[in-house]
Design a protein around this nucleic acid. Structure first.
Lengths: 215, 215
DNA sequence: AGAGAAATTAGACCGACTGTCTCAATAAAT
DNA sequence: ATTTATTGAGACAGTCGGTCTAATTTCTCT
């Protein structure tokens, strides 16, 4: 059903203790994380088996459990990595001083739509995916996910505050709350975009959000 | 981890061909569907094993595969049942002529929040849950889910049109699109409500939706 | 240079569980 | 008496997350 190129063995992988080189960095560990994010953004946590990721990068189980004590810990590392990657991307847009604040957020939205299209709407948001699985997930992951949302919300709120300072939105606008609304709806939009294999839900929601902003 | 009352054997279950009675209706089949909806609204499709449902209602595997040819078919039946149940609930609110149209929608929102609280925010929306799993789901289910959303959207759109006729929202409002927005955001809100174990996201989004409606 | 110690790979292996299927036992309907 | 519907138990092959140990390589310490 879901074939993957089984092992893009760039370096055919050598056993034994590796040369120390750039420290704190493991080629294998990195490959596992990269593949993990890819697969989990598609299928979520419980629908993904460790073996799937292993065979995708051509890494044996021993290596996996050398780097990660459990699937849960792996998931946690994935969330952390994804959150970091995403926060940087967010900042790239939201702190872009060459654009007015609201336009920055619009640019992010447009970019996200393009990103989903690039993977034919099979990949969604890792945090949203795992968030949906709350009930069958260890509680530590749940808290971690909530924290990530709080962080993203902060960044959007800051951007909205900049818009407020510019007079682009009403002076009495509750930016924190609006940022909350944005992410609530956005995750719903990503879900629908996957389901319909279209970026329309993203656009529809974004339009609604921007026109709904208090003036 | 997740203990369930293992077999609430009201009728201790008899083998052999059952008496015909009210036709097209099987006690066992019904129990499986009921339990299926309960569990899948919590954990989704792939995180749920058939055995979980079986032991919950005290039904052997043979019976399951007598009534449903596969897990996929079972899932499909669950969606159908849930969609029907939900459509009736929706109508109960949205066609309530004793209330002005927008208030009907508000009432639905309030009821949904109460419903989620009743199960400590562990259960979400079956359609949303499975929608998230798109990538690891058979395509027939995906289409079925999309159809369900289309149906719900229709019902909300009709309600919004009634509001438009009453002059509660702008005469040039695109009700279909607004209904689309509602469900996009609503599913996101349900997701967040589960994650934060709070009905706040539901309220926050609903407020935003109603104040964002064109006048 | 040599002797450990440490890090990583390799994959067999475990028990539990997955979805599916078979088949006999039973009971009602015909 | 035969057919039909359902139950009950369990076999089946496969997968799951996870453990274990041996093999291999490089590190560090003397």
């Amino acid at each position: 059903m879901d074939l993957q190129p089984p092992a893009s063995n760039t370096t055919p992988r050598r056993r034994g203790r590796p040369p120390k080189s750039a420290n704190g960095f493991s080629e294998t560990r990195e490959a596992l994380l990269r593949a993990g994010v890819e697969v989990l953004t598609e299928k979520g946590f419980s629908a993904t088996g460790i073996d799937q990721i292993l065979s995708r990068v051509g890494v044996p189980k021993g290596s996996f459990y050398h780097f990660f004590p459990s699937k849960e810990a792996f998931g946690s590392a994935l969330i952390e990595r994804y959150a970091g990657y995403f926060a940087r991307k967010l900042d790239r847009f939201l702190l872009d001083e060459s654009q007015p604040p609201l336009q920055r957020l619009r640019n992010f939205v447009a970019d996200a739509g393009g990103g989903m299209a690039r993977f034919e709407f099979r990949r969604g948001c890792l945090v949203g995916n795992l968030g949906q699985e709350t009930a069958s997930l260890p509680d530590t992951l749940r808290q971690q996910l909530a924290a990530v949302f709080a962080d993203w919300e902060e960044r959007v709120a800051a951007c909205l505050e900049a818009a407020r300072s510019d007079g682009a939105i009403a002076a009495d606008a509750d930016c924190q709350r609006l940022a909350n609304c944005f992410w609530i709806g956005w995750e719903g939009a990503v879900l629908r975009a996957k389901l319909e294999a279209s970026s329309r839900p993203l656009e529809v929601f974004a339009d609604f959000f921007f026109t709904g902003l208090p003036r």
